[in-house]
């Protein structure tokens, strides 16, 4: 372990800054992980557990026992008698400060004890119904479907339209090319927050308000995507295009059969980004969509928060469901994503 930690820039020499570096990285990892882990753990707790304080670090539920002669399973408690002896009992009912209990070994005999003598036994328990219930109770599946629809359609269109524009900008000389490229890049400077009011007017004018296509179409053209793909296409030799032209391929066929397949790495990066952007989109769908049956996950989730303020067990479960796809994508494509961000500066 020491040897592993000591492998720093100067082999064999470990100074205080190396320890500080490791300390910082480890501490930072905890800072990142704890809130997320806490949400995941909490999402598996029962409603009673989630509202109890102080919180338990593991999801638990009351231990129960089925006793002959009792209709329902009874919760299990430890009774500490005044003489200090301990005894496992099952709670039948509780009135004020006294409780009626029985010894599971002798189910016929019930007796009363003060509540202060009782301590509840809990066992490890994962409440998976937090995940299944909202699917039935709320329109969660609907939100999920809407989000998947928006994400998939918008990503496919983004890849298609942006690559077409990038193809024109990288492989042709035509009047107005540089002006159009500059125009497209200039849209990077215009964030949604500045134009959200008139953009919504346009959506209303196009009769796309409260329509998933209103969310999709306005996000399809991205300057980032055009830029990324154009830079990549510039590295494809022009000879290939000309060879295809000599081979009697139409311009569209050159794009479709030659340029697009060769752009696969750049398309993959853009696809990853597009999926994450669309999956996480919040402000724009919030403006465009108004009826719950059109909500995306993010909007649905944030509306749940207002609606069911106390039902944290459901909200957290749905939060975990929402962050899961992005997490899976990240785990598998971590290298692509971080390198894509580092090299292009897009997010």
């Amino acid at each position: 372990m020491i040897a592993f930690l000591a492998r720093t820039r100067h082999p064999g020499r470990t100074d205080i800054t190396d320890w500080l570096a490791w300390g910082w990285a480890t501490l930072g990892t905890l800072v990142v992980a704890i809130p997320i882990a806490w949400a995941v753990i909490s999402s598996l707790k029962t409603e009673a557990e989630i509202n109890s304080f102080p919180p338990a670090l593991v999801p638990r539920a009351a231990q129960t026992i089925t006793v002959e002669g009792q209709e329902k399973p009874l919760s299990v408690w430890i009774r500490t008698a005044p003489d200090g002896s301990e005894q496992t009992v099952a709670l039948v009912r509780r009135v004020g400060l006294s409780a009626t209990v029985l010894d599971p070994a002798k189910p016929e005999e019930t007796f009363r004890v003060p509540v202060t003598e009782l301590r509840q036994l809990k066992e490890f328990h994962l409440q998976f119904s937090n995940y299944t219930e909202p699917m039935k109770q709320f329109d969660f599946l609907r939100y999920l479907w809407n989000t998947v629809f928006v994400t998939v359609v918008a990503t496919v269109l983004t890849l298609l339209l942006n690559s077409m524009a990038a193809f024109a900008l990288s492989k042709y000389r035509f009047a107005g090319r540089n002006a159009m490229f500059a125009l497209i890049l200039s849209t990077m400077m215009i964030p949604l927050s500045v134009i959200m009011v008139p953009a919504f007017m346009v959506i209303v004018g196009l009769n796309l308000a409260d329509n998933l296509w209103g969310v999709i179409l306005s996000t399809v053209s991205t300057p980032t995507g055009v830029f990324l793909l154009r830079q990549y296409m510039l590295t494809i030799p022009d000879d290939l295009i000309e060879a295809a032209r000599v081979d009697a391929a139409s311009e569209f066929r050159i794009y479709w059969r030659i340029v697009l397949p060769l752009c696969a790495p750049a398309l993959a990066v853009l696809a990853i980004f597009s999926v994450i952007w669309r999956w996480n989109d919040f402000l724009w769908p919030l403006i465009v969509l108004s009826s719950p049956e059109n909500y995306t996950l993010q909007i649905g989730l944030s509306s749940l928060q207002g609606q069911f303020n106390v039902q944290w067990h459901y909200i957290l479960a749905m939060t975990v469901v929402t962050l899961l796809p992005v997490t899976v994508v990240f785990i598998f494509l971590q290298k692509y994503i971080t390198e894509g961000v580092a090299s292009s500066g897009v997010k």
């Binding site: 990285a25 930072g28 990892t29 990142v32 992980a33 704890i34 809130p35 997320i36 806490w38 949400a39 909490s42 994450i276 999956w279 996480n280 989109d281 919040f282 993010q298 989730l301 944030s302 928060q305 944290w312 909200i315 957290l316 939060t319 929402t322 962050l323 992005v326 997490t327 994508v329 990240f330 971590q334 994503i337 971080t338 961000v341 997010k347």
Partner: peptide, 23 residues
């Protein structure tokens, strides 16, 4: 560590808001 520190960037604002509200 690069992956760990970058990971939150990919979460949605709603998810981040809710996780921290709960925390």
């Amino acid at each position: 560590f690069r992956a760990v520190f970058f990971y939150p960037v990919l979460l949605s604002p709603v998810v981040v808001g809710l996780i921290w509200q709960w925390f």
